[in-house]
């Protein structure tokens, strides 16, 4: 196995594209090193992207926030402006693992690991986040939900690297929230995760909404029907009931030791309702 630490994205993409054997990208390493040490993968090349300029930066731009691929969960949690603008995204990212894991884990890694239960992903999808990808053929930008295509599988092509995740600029009176169900209080894998993002008008009526579910399907699921149930309402009981029903209807979960299929379907609706109310409160609604 070789370890490389390129200083430019171009060099990194070339190394990955040229490699004939198994090549992996290293950012936080909290998934990669576990797989490496347990013999689950036998890499020929590991490309550490932390030496690349901008990979550890959170930038506030004219169009929102640009978060470098190697920014850790702890760094997200310490960024006051980001936390204020996107509390749901930051709380989701901060739920991943322990303080030790937070010191290293990244949202880009969480996305590329492509676990159906990834905590930061539903929040990113609800936030309409985009991933900026650099590869041998140049740069492209895609919606975050287009990256995972199945458990452990992504749409990234050979040589492609996520350079950053971009969060859009917030209209006034916007809020987001992420909730997950786990049997413990900390350090567990989501049985269900829900991200909700809303914008209100001056009267407290929802003008924009996005709802995304995790751990209830092979990939994260954006639920337009759930968003539609909220838009044009003040999130009264009928609207929340309709949204919860839409979330439950969008689930196609597995049965496993952490939760049954029926449980996950029911809890998706329950959590969506709670997350929506938190998002509304954060947007300045009552």
């Amino acid at each position: 196995m070789r370890y490389e630490r390129p200083t430019t994205l171009k060099a990194a993409a070339q190394m990955l594209a040229k490699e004939k054997g198994q090549a992996f990208i290293l950012a936080g390493g909290t998934d990669l090193l576990v797989r490496l040490r347990t013999g689950f993968i036998e890499p020929d090349l590991i490309v550490d992207i932390k030496g690349i300029n901008g990979s550890k930066a959170i930038q506030k731009t004219a169009t929102g926030f640009k978060i470098g691929a190697a920014v850790s969960g702890a760094e997200l949690g310490e960024h006051a402006a980001l936390k204020k603008a996107w509390p749901g995204v930051v709380e989701a990212a901060n739920l991943i693992g322990s303080k030790q894991v937070q010191g290293r884990c990244t949202m880009s890694g969480n996305l590329c690991n492509a676990s159906p239960a990834a905590d930061s992903v539903p929040a990113l999808v609800a936030a309409a986040a985009k991933a900026v990808i650099v590869g041998p053929k140049g740069k492209r930008t895609v919606a975050v939900e287009e990256i995972p295509v199945g458990p452990g599988k992504t749409s990234l092509k050979k040589g492609e690297i996520i350079e950053s995740i971009v969060l859009p600029k917030r209209p006034p009176k916007s809020g987001d929230a992420y909730l997950r169900f786990i049997p413990r209080t900390e350090m567990d894998i989501a049985v269900v995760g829900v991200g909700v993002n809303v914008t209100l008008d001056g009267k407290g009526i929802v003008t924009k909404a996005r709802v995304a579910l995790g751990a209830v399907a092979p990939t994260v699921r954006l639920v337009p029907a759930a968003a539609k149930a909220l838009i044009g309402t003040k999130m009264d009981k009928a609207a929340l009931d309709a949204m919860a029903a839409a979330c439950s209807a969008a689930c196609s979960p597995i049965d496993d030791k952490r939760g049954t299929r029926d449980f996950r379907i029911k809890v998706a609706g329950v959590l969506a309702r709670r997350a929506a109310l938190i998002a509304r409160k954060r947007a300045g609604g009552k």
Partner: peptide, 20 residues
């Protein structure tokens, strides 16, 4: 557990080469 640049981390999840 160790700290890397003051940040708590598990040293089993860091490659030695990354310490550069």
């Amino acid at each position: 557990s160790v700290t890397v640049d003051g940040r708590l981390t598990c040293s089993c999840l860091v490659l030695g080469a990354e310490a550069e």
